[in-house]
């Protein structure tokens, strides 16, 4: 099922052409990778899907219905959740408080927090994603970067996301941590979510991706399904084959 479809989408900031003619599909139970170097337009693209910016041209279909998203809240209501790399959590707060932040369940006459439910649910939901956190009371800042990403992913899944946008989830992580995060990304996919994975690492993308969209300087330079492209081709397209060749030439020693 196609959850999100972008067709020839473009976005201009004043006279700057940030995005031009980009098409992309997100299917349930699949991972669509968006690859590109810094300034390629990856951020602009996810901001359009996440409802932070409106697109100027082309169409955005959500579950087959043409849509213009006006706010992140609208995107959330349509089941599109975004996990940002840096502003995912409040480090000093316990894991369970972070998990429910902004959507706290309440109970009783005095509308107090349903703390038992919050603790239990946090533990259970993390377990479903493959993290066995005995102590949901520890500050989330004591978790590793990968685990924090995982909590944010589990949170989005719990609150009914159908589409999960992950903004460079492995950018600040080491090799091992990246592997852990990619496993959780795969776990979210296996639970039937459509995932959009933004990255500039073709190795990470090729490990989990079903579709690959390559961006360079605001335009789409490639769109492939998994069986159409090898890792080497992906890497070379991503770096810009000819650019890499000329760089090698420049760096060659006398």
């Amino acid at each position: 099922m196609t959850l999100v479809r972008l067709t020839g989408v473009s976005k201009h900031y004043g006279t700057v052409r940030a995005l031009e003619g980009v098409s992309l599909e997100v299917h349930a139970g699949q991972i669509t990778c968006v690859l590109g170097d810094n300034g390629a337009g990856k951020s602009t693209l996810i901001k359009i899907i996440a409802g932070l910016h409106r697109h100027d041209g082309g169409t955005l279909d959500i579950e087959g219905e043409e849509t213009v998203l006006n706010s992140p809240r609208e995107a959330l209501d349509r089941g599109i959740a975004t996990v940002h790399q840096d502003l995912a959590v409040v480090p000093l707060m316990p894991v369970w408080r972070n998990f429910f932040l902004g959507s706290e369940p309440r109970t009783g006459l005095l509308r107090r927090l349903d703390v038992d439910f919050m603790r239990r649910t946090t533990h259970a939901e993390l377990l479903r994603m493959g993290i066995d956190l005995r102590d949901v009371d520890q500050p989330i800042g004591t978790l590793s970067g990968g685990e924090r990403q995982c909590v944010a992913i589990a949170r989005a899944v719990y609150f009914g996301a159908k589409v999960l946008i992950l903004d460079e989830p492995t950018a600040a992580l080491g090799v091992k941590q990246s592997g852990v995060v990619l496993k959780y990304v795969a776990a979210a996919r296996d639970r039937g979510l459509g995932v959009v994975l933004i990255t500039h690492n073709p190795h990470h993308a090729h490990l989990v991706g079903d579709r690959f969209v390559l961006l360079r300087r605001g335009t789409m330079v490639g769109s492939h399904t998994r069986d159409e492209i090898t890792l080497d081709e992906l890497t070379s397209q991503m770096a810009g084959g000819s650019d890499l060749e000329s760089l090698r030439h420049e760096l060659e020693r006398g």
Binding site: R73, L87, V90, L101, S103
Partner: peptide, 15 residues
């Protein structure tokens, strides 16, 4: 706790 700990994160999740 959230607005004091990380205002941007709090805002992003709807606080």
């Amino acid at each position: 706790f959230a607005v004091g700990g990380n205002q941007d994160a709090a805002r992003a999740v709807g606080v």
